[in-house]
Write a protein that binds this DNA or RNA. Structure first.
Lengths: 127, 127
DNA sequence: CAGGTTGTGCTAAATTTTTAGCATTATTTT
DNA sequence: AAAATAATGCTAAAAATTTAGCACAACCTG
């Protein structure tokens, strides 16, 4: 018997793809899966994920379109919190520092301004 | 044959614990594992992880102390990038916004100041 | 409207993960 | 130095995951 939000490796990979694309067909999932197994295998996994309640589908023409049951925001927050806890000691500052480090090259002046504004706004709301 | 940075569920959980504590004994890993299996099982997994090259150990008195082979910074960046790609469309701004949203209550005025400084400093370095 | 394409449903088998138990070795205590 | 304690090594079995293949249905194409 299985339960809980414990996902296997493949299941995790599939969920990631679905979250990334917001929703996806079996073909799309298959296409983006690293070291992809057969199409059949992907479909079987999608079925398992649906049975476990992690995704649902709607039919559109001939095919199924799968989307997560837990809303993106929630999954997002959970993922972020997990990384924060595991690697950053729950420190917002450390995460932001690492983030800036990673993306330094691609940020424009405007981007920096918007970031500063974000923080200022949060500060005002957070009281 | 297996290879690559593909980790099973348990393996992932164990790596997270080791990263969180920087290094850990089998007993510590066991202690912090959610829905922990037997001590033996944990040790077997540690061995597998070592064989796969994800962790190494040094001996200290009677016991092994395990630590990751890839340095924390690298793993950190990788994890953060992954979350960014999967949930945040690779947008620094979106991540920071979510981050502030999550931690709003626990941030002091000083924290906000330091965050702003971080960004300002990154801006100056990034040119 | 017949043929081809592109889907899904289902089932069974291979592989990997996950587990426990016992034997052995090292350390500490008395 | 003997006993007790706390580790690890190893092996084999149980459970879960991952996979492929065939059958059938819906849609498109000429």
């Amino acid at each position: 018997m299985n339960e809980q939000s414990n996902l296997s490796r493949r299941e995790r990979e599939i969920m990631d793809i679905i979250y990334k694309f917001k929703e996806a067909t079996a073909a799309q999932v298959h296409e983006h899966l690293p070291e992809p197994p057969s199409y059949s295998a992907v479909r079987a996994l999608l079925k398992v994920l649906e049975e476990k309640g992690h995704i649902m589908h709607r039919q559109e023409g001939p095919r199924y379109i799968f989307l997560p049951t837990t809303p993106p925001e929630e999954a997002m927050n959970k993922a972020l919190k997990h990384v924060m806890r595991t690697f950053f000691d729950n420190s917002t500052e450390k995460v932001v520092a690492a983030l800036l480090d990673i993306t330094e090259e691609t940020l424009s002046d405007d981007d920096y301004i918007r970031l500063t504004q974000l923080i200022e706004r949060a500060r005002q709301e957070g009281r």
